[in-house]
């Protein structure tokens, strides 16, 4: 595995002289893409880690199980599961998330679903687009973590996650060979650093619409107004008063005195 990680020279694609040159895009030998697979797995683990503790324990178990199996399969040159195995697996993952969380939208359930799906996607990383999609899901997992964690230390970790994912995207976009890890990280750092001014400008210029315009449920942390049937002293220590319009009244006749 180490040998595959540190492959330097870039192998050349031979001119395809077969009768099916179209297959050239899809058929990569496991050896060629193992370095890229390791980068994909790295990105998935980094992007998935902040979620692991917040999810039902079966999710990390399944995800790590699939990732481990995929790595062994790459080293031992096993056949990847066929479409007929992947479709039921994917459906099973979907149903399992739905049963555990009673929904598939929302922050937590959505993260769980993304994590399960990205693990499944690792089972069919053939072309460049498959690999790119894995990284895009990693970006989305990082995004979901950003929405939940607002602490400074976590944003540092998540920025590192963006760097790793970008480096992995760079590696997987290469044809046939990966570059050494420090060079890929330097490339990712350069891209991210150059994107920062763009981010700052948009961040301050982009108009903000107050309040959710699309009521996505926020998972388990949803609160309701009104008091519960049972209360103990100290349940509510602080109440903020809202000056929002509570309701409007229209009278059919004149306003009663």
């Amino acid at each position: 595995m180490r040998r595959l990680l540190t492959r330097f020279g870039s192998a050349r694609e031979k001119p395809a002289q077969s009768k099916h040159p179209k297959r050239e895009r899809r058929s990569e030998t496991p050896d060629q893409s193992t370095g890229q697979l390791l980068w994909l797995v790295f990105a998935v683990v980094v992007a998935g880690a902040p979620h692991l503790l917040h999810l039902h324990p079966w999710v990390p178990v399944i995800v790590l199980g699939i990732v481990g199996w995929r790595l062994i399969a790459a080293v031992k040159r096993w056949q990847l599961p066929s479409l007929w195995l992947r479709i039921p697996l994917t459906l099973f993952g979907f149903v399992a998330v739905m049963f555990s969380y009673r929904q598939v939208t929302g922050l937590v359930a959505g993260s769980a679903l993304l994590l399960v799906m990205v693990a499944m996607k690792l089972l069919e990383t053939r072309g460049h687009r498959d690999r790119a999609v894995v990284i895009f899901i990693c970006y989305f997992l990082l995004f979901a973590a950003f929405l939940r964690e607002q602490a400074i230390w976590s944003s540092g970790y998540l920025m590192a996650g963006v760097l790793v994912s970008t480096a992995a995207l760079y590696q997987t976009a290469r044809i046939g060979s990966v570059v050494p890890a420090p060079r890929a990280m330097a490339m990712a750092f350069r891209l991210v650093a150059q994107a920062v001014p763009f981010m700052i400008i948009l961040f301050f210029l982009f108009p903000r619409i107050p309040g959710p315009f699309w009521s996505l449920p926020t998972g388990g942390s949803t609160a309701m107004t009104g008091l519960t049937n049972e209360m103990t002293p100290g349940d509510i220590t602080e109440l903020a008063q809202s000056d929002a319009v509570a309701f409007r009244v229209r009278f059919n006749g004149s306003i009663p005195e």
């Binding site: 970006y139 990082l142 961040f203 959710p212």
Partner: peptide, 30 residues
């Protein structure tokens, strides 16, 4: 994906979300 993230950030009105969205958009432009 970036557009979806933008919608998500707007929905939750989350500044970190906006920051990541615009960072990714910047990477695309660069």
């Amino acid at each position: 994906i970036v557009f979806t993230m933008l919608l998500g950030s707007m929905n939750y009105n989350n500044n970190m979300g906006f920051a990541l969205t615009f960072l990714l958009a910047g990477i695309g432009v660069i």
